[in-house]
């Protein structure tokens, strides 16, 4: 179980990016974190990953305190960040450096087959399309079998079709070992399609404003009334989160707050 207890982050320039976030995430749960820009979503994710540890509060994974990158936690960034000097297979096996060669090759082959890129094992990253490269990044993060997989706006740089495709694919891959997924996104549809629970964050300082459970059976139909109902709730929460964050006198920002999310 992943437990965040009053996690705060203050940068050296005294900007408080996170103001005490406390959450409990069950193993195998999929949580989407959504919010306007500057609400600390990415900061929260980086604190959980141990790349940028919290300045106060604790992150506990199965009772173990996380203050540096951990073997049980994988992360996928907005860009694939593949190493250009390694072929696709080398990139997928990057996290298995300590394993015997044979095991590594077998696990890489399985992972590549699983993401549908078995025929690209010997390709260079530059030869891949954006969607393929992100799939390689997903395979690379999943190969060490993390208990928690963090995703920082992983599909936001992709075109709409590839994005929906990869969202479905991610769920499919998740079903293999059911790791905990924490997904930062600014796409409301994406959050509702994937998550068991949507956490809405608000800025200055970043904290959790509202939590909305998504109790829909998978695969979820984006056109259904139930989906639309949840979407309205999330949008309303987002709207309120941004209005409350700005001073009441600041009328202009209040009016445009909801629209800001649709960029």
């Amino acid at each position: 179980m992943l437990v965040l207890d009053r996690v705060s982050k203050t940068y050296p320039n005294a900007v408080q990016a996170l103001g005490g976030v406390s959450v409990e995430v069950e193993p195998g749960e999929i949580v989407a974190v959504i919010g306007g820009s500057g609400c600390g979503k990415s900061t929260l994710l980086r604190a959980i990953s141990g790349l940028d540890p919290a300045s106060a509060g604790t992150v506990l994974l199965d009772g173990e305190r996380i203050s540096a990158p951990h073997q049980k936690i994988g992360i996928i960034f907005q860009e694939p960040r593949l190493l250009p000097w390694l072929k696709v297979a080398g990139n997928v096996g990057f996290g298995l450096g300590d394993r015997p060669k044979q095991e590594r090759a077998a696990r890489v082959a399985t992972a590549l087959k699983r993401v549908g890129l078995a025929d690209q094992a010997a390709a260079w990253p530059r030869e891949l399309s954006g969607g393929q490269a992100q799939r390689v990044a997903i395979a690379r993060a999943l190969v060490p079998r993390p208990e928690v997989l963090l995703l920082d706006e992983p599909f936001s740089a992709l075109d709409a079709f590839t994005r929906t495709d990869l969202q479905a694919h991610l769920l499919d891959l998740w079903a293999d070992a059911k790791p905990t997924l924490i997904l930062v996104t600014h796409d409301v549809d994406e959050a509702i399609v994937l998550a068991d629970r949507v956490m809405v964050m608000c800025p200055r300082p970043g904290r959790i404003f509202d939590e909305i459970a998504v109790d829909l059976p998978r695969p979820r139909d984006r056109q259904s009334a139930a989906f639309d109902f949840v979407k309205r709730r999330v949008l309303a929460a987002l709207d309120r989160s941004l209005s409350r964050a700005v001073a009441p006198a600041d009328g202009e920002a209040k009016a445009s707050a909801g629209a800001a999310l649709w960029w």
């Binding site: 990953s49 790349l51 540096a68 990158p69 951990h70 073997q71 994988g74 992360i75 960034f77 860009e79 960040r81 190493l83 000097w85 990057f94 996290g95 450096g97 060490p144």
Partner: peptide, 27 residues
């Protein structure tokens, strides 16, 4: 810096970071 961060996320030691990320990057 983003590739260095990938190395950090996979918990490379200093020596591994040099050998697996920095050297190939500067070559």
């Amino acid at each position: 810096r983003k590739l260095v961060e990938v190395g950090r996320a996979f918990r490379l030691s200093d020596v591994q970071m040099v050998r697996r990320i920095l050297l190939p990057a500067v070559l």
